[in-house]
Design a binder for these strands. Structure first.
Lengths: 192, 192
DNA sequence: TTTTGTTGATTGACGAGTCAATAAACGATC
DNA sequence: GATCGTTTATTGACTCGTCAATCAACAAAA
């Protein structure tokens, strides 16, 4: 039965199943068994590849972060000028690949974990720093000294929009959230 | 040992201990035993008063919400005019009583729970609706038709600021977060 | 003696992680 | 091109710990 060179495929299935399962259950109280079953294998195999539940989840988040990072980089390369760069970052945050219920649910649980687990916290810090650096860098030439405050505000609005997306009454509305943030940016830049 | 009329005191201690314990552990993986020990009693007594762990946590969140609601109402009564009412709501969100690590941690976990537990979701909806109604009502006379968008943006910024507070690199800075949101409001109203 | 408060001990369930065993492919050697 | 040891893949069964919830029993008020 064993097929060789299957490791990367297994890992990918497990990561995908982890996100999906967290989306269903809504918390980290998912069992390794269920994740493994969903990915079509035994829980022992999941442990074989990832060592522990936490490490599996961290790998899943690393994957989410990678996808997100790629999306941001992609959007940045096609942007003209600083302002457009900021809008590109905003846009990338609401792309269908990132702005999905299961993924947002994973984010939420990642935040919870980051409160106490150093590994999760480190990973989150890397992401936060990169996001902040991107925003600041794009804003510096156009924000007249207020780049820091504006970067903070945009970051807060993005995170807030994510929260409202999973928990708000209405169905997820990425475009509208992005539009609200765009409007804020226009306002912030107009005010000189 | 039993003292009569002690029920409300026990309940209050348990609620307080629940928040504190969640602040320490960072997640809902707190045990009833630890909460009870912290409150100076056996876990059986905690079950006696609250029935279940989930119900204990929901009561704790109801308490947090009550305190917050009172703070908002208090701030609103001393406000002059619509714009000041909006600022009062913002201010109330960053009051020392609400903007504390343990309380924010409880909020975060409450969000997680609200994804799947109807009771938690209902409770959250009540809070969200009230917040939105307050903001809209204060904004309508001054926002020139953009009250809905501005209310959404402020709500998102508040939630985002909460997230960053527990997880950001710097220590909690309520006043600065409030100031950023205030600045946004000024901008949004100036642009008419 | 009924109500209220209180606990230690117990139950019952569940789940992470380990392990021994099995099997297929690989590759080296004759 | 058969033989054999090595690596990789795979699982069922098991261990071990944890914890929510229950219960029987006890203590003090009223």
């Amino acid at each position: 039965m064993p097929k060789i060179g299957i490791e990367p495929i297994r890992r990918a299935s497990l990561i995908k199943a982890t996100i999906a399962e967290i989306g269903d259950v809504g918390s980290l109280e998912v069992t390794v068994s269920r994740i493994a079953k969903r990915a079509g294998m035994s829980s022992a195999l999941a442990h074989h590849y990832f060592g522990s539940k936490e490490s599996l989840f961290l790998s899943a988040m690393r994957h989410v972060l990678t996808v997100y990072g790629a999306e941001v980089r992609g959007a940045l390369t096609t942007a003209n000028g600083p302002e457009d760069r900021v809008r590109a970052i905003i846009r990338a945050s609401f792309t269908p690949a990132n702005f999905r219920r299961e993924v947002i649910s994973a984010w939420l649980n990642f935040y919870v974990l980051a409160q106490t687990r150093p590994q999760a916290r480190r990973l989150l810090s890397v992401y936060q720093r990169r996001m902040h650096a991107n925003l600041r860098h794009a804003l510096r030439p156009i924000a007249g000294g207020r780049h820091d405050e504006i970067a903070r505000s945009i970051a807060a609005m993005i995170d807030g929009a994510y929260l409202h997306a999973v928990l708000g009454p209405d169905t997820l509305d990425g475009p509208r959230a992005a539009a609200d943030i765009d409007t804020y940016l226009t306002l912030a830049l107009k005010d000189r």
